[in-house]
Design a protein around this nucleic acid. Structure first.
Length: 302
DNA sequence: GTATGTGGTTACTGGATTAC
DNA sequence: GTAATCCAGTAACCACATAC
């Protein structure tokens, strides 16, 4: 439970029930355990914004230190506090936790194999802490699906970008552009023929840049409107800002948070045809992740 | 008033451990 | 080998607070 909270940063008791006791109907046991951890000073909680009855749990400094003792945890400098947990970050972090816990509960990916708020393209691209003020882009979640899913054609690494429609769609386009710059980024000391930063950091992805999956949060109707807006803007920007999308190596797709969770919450849900390519030259038809991956893969070298 | 989330308590089950 | 014990996990109560 500590490790999961370390990865997710914030989670409700219901999130942790999905992780710890997914077959039970009640989160009573999880809440009792959280109570023990709180009395031990390892976790703390704040109220869920807008809902006074629901708590949002996070690790204290002592809890984070205890989690870092686990070999499954990659230490990072970030620490959660009650002020941060109660602030505007809360909805965003919980939406990421929704995705991670659902992936874990339905055995699509282990929470401990995922990372949130991952900095990419900084001076040292292999920095395990991912901390740098000079990063090109901070990915909301990096997901490594289970080997069985990868064997079924799902990319070995997925970048997830959560879009709450709280900023302009131009900023989302800017962020996608940043991913394209990261795709081309190499270490300053590297020669042009050397591997890109992302190839060094994600060797399992081989020649294919991990797809950037834009997950639009909010009610499905509003998310659908947002996706139409983003798609049309990218289409208009085909000659300028997002020319990198033409290469076929950056496969960007959008789906609503609610749709994603409803599809993930079933066996084999990772391969549902729910992803609409945001590449301005691709048809706006939902595809599966294996199809997205296959389309982005460069032709075999002979 | 009803529904919901939380926390306290109790009882039960099943597996692991220990004593004989 | 068997009985006793411990403990984790679960469910079912209950009371309380709060939103609708």
């Amino acid at each position: 439970m500590l490790e999961a909270l370390y990865v997710c940063r914030l989670a409700t008791a219901e999130h942790l029930r999905l992780l710890v006791t997914p077959t039970t109907a009640s989160s009573r046991y999880v809440r009792a355990e959280l109570g023990k951890l709180a009395r031990a000073g390892l976790v703390n909680a704040v109220q869920l914004r807008g809902r006074t009855r629901t708590k949002v749990w996070f690790l204290t400094r002592a809890g984070a230190a205890a989690a870092e003792a686990s070999p499954a945890i990659t230490a990072r400098p970030h620490r959660m506090s009650a002020a941060l947990a109660a602030g505007p970050l809360q909805f965003h972090a919980l939406a990421v936790a929704d995705v991670l816990m659902t992936l874990h509960a339905y055995r699509h990916a282990s929470v401990l194999d995922c990372q949130v708020e991952v900095s990419h393209g900084q001076g040292n691209a292999q920095d395990p802490t991912g901390s740098s003020s000079r990063s090109m882009v901070i990915t909301d979640a990096v997901i490594r699906p289970q080997p069985s899913a990868v064997e079924g054609g799902v990319p070995p690494v997925l970048f997830v970008e959560l879009d709450r429609a709280t900023t302009s769609s131009h900023r989302l386009a800017d962020k996608l552009h940043a991913y394209d710059r990261y795709r081309q980024h190499r270490h300053a000391a590297s020669r042009a023929s050397s591997p890109s930063s992302w190839q060094t950091r994600y060797p399992s992805s081989e020649y294919t840049f991990p797809p950037v999956l834009v997950v639009i949060t909010g009610p499905p109707e509003r998310a659908g409107r947002r996706m139409d807006l983003v798609w049309n803007q990218l289409k208009q920007a085909r000659r300028g800002l997002l020319s990198g999308l033409d290469s076929g190596e950056v496969a960007v797709a959008g789906v609503s948070h609610a749709v994603l969770l409803s599809h993930l919450a079933r066996p084999g849900g990772l391969t549902a045809p729910i992803w609409t390519p945001l590449n301005p030259h691709a048809p706006a038809t939902p595809v599966t992740l294996p199809n997205l991956h296959a389309a982005a893969r460069p032709p075999k070298r002979t």
